[in-house]
C-alpha cells in the first residue's frame, strides 16, 4: 500500500514535469508538434540516441549514489560538482603519465586516484563538521567552487594541450578508453562498472557494519553517539565515500567518452545527481532508473533541438521542475516523519 502510494507520487511528479516541458516547448517553438514528438521519441528512435542517453545516465547514477550515501549519514554533500571535476582531472593526469602501463592496471590505478581525489576533498568538509561543527553543506560547496577554478587553471595553463583549440588536456593512451557497447553511440562498458558499484553499496548500506553505522548516525546522531558508534569517523567516512564516488563519476565519463579532460565538461553532473537521489528516495538501487529518466530529459531535448527549432536548454527547465516537484512529492515522506514525531509527544 505504502509502496503503491509512493510510486504513484513519483509517477505524478514525472507526468507534471513532462507537461511543464511540453508547455515550455509549446511557448518557444514555432512547430511544437514536431518538437514534442522528437522530445519524447527521439531518445528511442535509434540505437545511437538510445545509447547516448544511457551513456549520459552513467555519471548521474554515480553522483546520485554519492548524494544518497552522504545523505544517509544526514550530511549534505553539495560539493559534487567540484569533486567530479577534480577527481577527473587527477585521474586524467595519472592516465596521461601512466602511458606505458598495461591498460587494465592503468585503469584500476586511475579510478583509484580519482576516487581518492574526490573523496579526499569531500572528507575535508566531513572533518570540519566533525571537528568544529562547520556546516558541511556550505563548506563542501565553497571547496567545490574553489576547485573548479583550480582545475580550470590547470586546463588553461600547465596541463593544456597546446594543439587543442579549446581548454583541454592532452589525450591519454587510447588503449585506456573503455570499450564501446552500442556503436556508433557513446555507450561504454563503464555502465557495468557503475551498476556493480551501485549494487555493492546497496548491500553495504543494508548489511555491513559501516552501512548500519551510517544509517543510525544519520537518523539520530545523539543516539548513535550514546550507543558508542564512532560518529565522527562515520560522518567523515560517509563524506569520503560520497566524494570518492563523485570522483569516479567524473573519471568513468572521461575514460568512456572523452579520452581527455575538457574544461566544463561535467557541469551539472553534481546538481542533477542530487535531484536523482531525491527522486530515488535515497535508495541506491532506485538511483538507476532515476538517472536514466534525467538523462532522457536531456537527450530528448537534444534530439528535439536537432530536428526542430527548440533549444536544448529546455531540458534544464524540465529538470528544475522535477527538482521542485520532487520536494513537494516529498510531502508524504515528511508527513510521515512528522507523524512519528507527534506520536511520541
Amino acid at each position: 500500500m505504502k509502496k503503491l502510494e509512493e510510486s504513484m507520487r513519483v509517477l505524478i511528479t514525472i507526468i507534471i514535469a513532462l507537461m511543464i516541458g511540453v508547455l515550455a516547448i509549446t511557448l518557444t517553438s514555432k512547430e511544437p508538434g514536431i518538437a514534442i514528438k522528437y522530445f519524447f521519441t527521439g531518445p528511442f528512435s535509434s540505437a545511437y540516441f538510445f545509447g547516448n542517453m544511457l551513456a549520459a545516465s552513467i555519471p548521474l547514477m554515480l553522483t546520485g549514489l554519492a548524494t544518497s550515501i552522504a545523505f544517509s549519514a544526514s550530511a549534505f554533500n553539495l560539493g559534487l560538482e567540484g569533486q567530479v571535476y577534480f577527481g577527473a582531472l587527477c585521474g586524467t593526469y595519472v592516465a596521461y603519465e601512466l602511458n606505458a602501463v598495461p591498460p587494465i592496471i592503468a585503469i584500476i590505478v586511475v579510478l583509484a586516484v580519482s576516487f581518492a581525489a574526490g573523496g579526499g576533498i569531500a572528507a575535508i568538509s566531513g572533518y570540519l563538521k566533525s571537528k568544529w561543527n562547520v556546516d558541511e553543506l556550505i563548506s563542501s560547496l565553497l571547496v567545490s567552487y574553489t576547485l573548479i577554478y583550480i582545475v580550470d587553471f590547470f586546463l588553461e595553463g600547465p596541463f593544456k594541450d597546446p594543439a587543442a583549440g579549446l581548454a583541454a588536456s592532452p589525450y591519454f593512451n587510447k588503449k585506456f578508453v573503455l570499450p564501446k557497447i552500442l556503436l556508433p553511440s557513446d555507450l561504454h562498458i563503464g555502465i557495468f562498472i557503475v551498476l556493480a558499484i551501485i549494487i555493492l553499496f546497496s548491500i553495504i548500506m543494508k548489511r555491513n557494519k559501516f552501512g548500519y553505522e551510517v544509517r543510525i548516525t544519520g537518523k539520530n546522531f545523539r543516539f548513535a553517539k550514546y550507543a558508542g558508534i564512532p560518529v565522527k569517523k562515520v560522518v567523515i567516512m560517509a563524506m569520503f565515500f560520497s566524494g570518492g564516488i563523485a570522483g569516479l563519476a567524473g573519471m568513468i565519463d572521461i575514460l568512456g567518452i572523452h579520452g581527455r579532460m575538457i574544461r566544463g565538461y561535467s557541469a551539472g553532473y553534481g546538481w542533477n545527481g542530487i535531484a536523482v537521489a531525491l527522486i530515488a528516495r535515497n535508495n541506491p538501487l532506485l538511483v538507476i532508473p532515476a538517472a536514466i529518466f534525467f538523462a532522457f530529459l536531456q537527450s530528448g531535448a537534444n534530439v528535439s533541438a536537432l530536428f526542430s527549432d527548440v533549444t536544448p536548454e529546455v531540458a534544464r527547465i524540465i529538470q528544475a521542475a522535477v527538482f521542485y516537484l520532487v520536494t513537494a512529492e516529498g510531502l508524504l515522506f515528511f508527513l510521515k516523519k512528522k507523524r512519528m514525531e507527534k506520536g511520541q509527544t
Binding site: R215, I216, K219, N220, R222, F223, A224, Y226, K337, M340, E341, Q344
Partner: peptide, 10 residues
C-alpha cells in the same frame, strides 16, 4: 528516551 536513548525511526 527519544532524542538520545533510542532511534525512533529505526
Amino acid at each position: 528516551r527519544i532524542g538520545e536513548g533510542s532511534c525512533p525511526t529505526s
